[in-house]
Design a protein around this nucleic acid. Structure first.
Lengths: 195, 195
DNA sequence: CCACGAATAGCACGGATGTGCTATTCTGGC
DNA sequence: GCCAGAATAGCACATCCGTGCTATTCGTGG
């Protein structure tokens, strides 16, 4: 990896942190440059507009999520075990020491749910892909016989996503230590109703 | 109501719209002044800092929610009917023509979940109050005998809140027309498991 | 090791921001 | 209808923003 690629990666990693806690729109080139210890124009030269930086940060986040959540889950046997691994990884993603601002995508979702443009489009694509992945994982539970045949995978994915969103909210804003337990209890109830 | 109070109310209503779609932090005094048709310093004089404006917008939103969601629900008989009315009002609040940016509080929650200061503190207080209201409404379902006695109202409120968050996300970002149906299906499943 | 291209820094610009201060206009009680 | 005080506007200032342009330093293939 060349020098340029290294600093670019460092920028994107720092950018993810800032964007996750302050928002993709508030992510300013000058402050980000200070944070990684370089000049504003030096950083700017890597991306040639703010929008390109935002898109790059989003894509970097997508890769990070795939690597630390989706990947490990795919290592588990399809069906319920995989679903459980997915939840574990996801909750850790929402709240871990190397994710200072929580989930970048939930932050961005709130920010761009009423905006237009390329950044929103990219975000929607990422979220749809994630949802499809969730739906597929739920489908496999039916196919493997872990869930009843009449369980609707899209409905299941919706409710699972809901629990993860609430987990994020309860832990990060309300700082409720009971949140992980509530999330898991809800998950067990959800699973039980699909058996 | 004096002239000053009138314009103040107009400012706060417009401020709610802007804040709900672009965020409380991106809510700029100059653009808000343009929107309500007055000068920047004229508007600024009403609040004496940006923070005060943000706090006032939050409080205005709290009142609006109480009036258009909590109030009508309290008109329904306690227990399950009130809970259903609460959900109806809440979903309408998340997506109605006079709420262009969706829920101000969900927007603000994402924005301030990793920030410090008075605005965050005020937001947390509002959200806790809302949650308490939800918990109380669930408790009443137990007390009225609509729910089993061993149902945990806090867990129930958590899962209901989760569904509403997912509803907001699915409708506003993903623009999924199936979202209200999914939310209600989830709600019915949640209710059924409490019977 | 050297040269060339990539990587970074310096500087300038127009515009927007929050916030003071002063002046003007308007409104409501007498 | 006047007049005190509230409401609003005008202007200035320092600061930050994104983005160009130019110069300089650095990494790297030959």
């Amino acid at each position: 990896m060349s020098k340029g690629d290294e600093t670019r990666a460092a920028i994107l990693t720092a950018g993810m942190d800032v964007a996750a806690s302050e928002g993709l729109e508030a992510l300013s080139i000058g402050r980000l440059a200070d944070r990684v210890g370089m000049s504003k124009s030096g950083l700017f030269a890597h991306f040639r507009s703010k929008k390109a930086l935002q898109l790059a940060v989003l894509d970097h986040g997508r890769r990070a999520f795939a690597e630390s959540v989706a990947g490990p889950a795919l290592g588990e046997p399809r069906g319920e075990p995989r679903l459980r691994a997915l939840l574990d990884g996801w909750l850790a993603w929402n709240w871990s020491e190397d994710a200072p601002g929580g989930c970048l995508f939930l932050q961005a979702a709130a920010e761009y749910d009423d905006r237009e443009g390329e950044v929103r489009d990219a975000l929607v694509r990422i979220q749809r892909d994630l949802l499809d992945f969730l739906v597929r994982a739920s489908e496999l539970c039916v196919e493997e016989g872990h869930f009843r045949a009449d369980v609707d995978p899209r409905q299941f994915a919706f409710e699972l996503f809901a629990l993860v969103m609430a987990h994020h909210f309860y832990t990060r804003l309300l700082e409720d230590p009971a949140a992980p337990g509530r999330t898991r209890d809800g998950f067990e109830r959800l699973i039980a109703s699909a058996h």
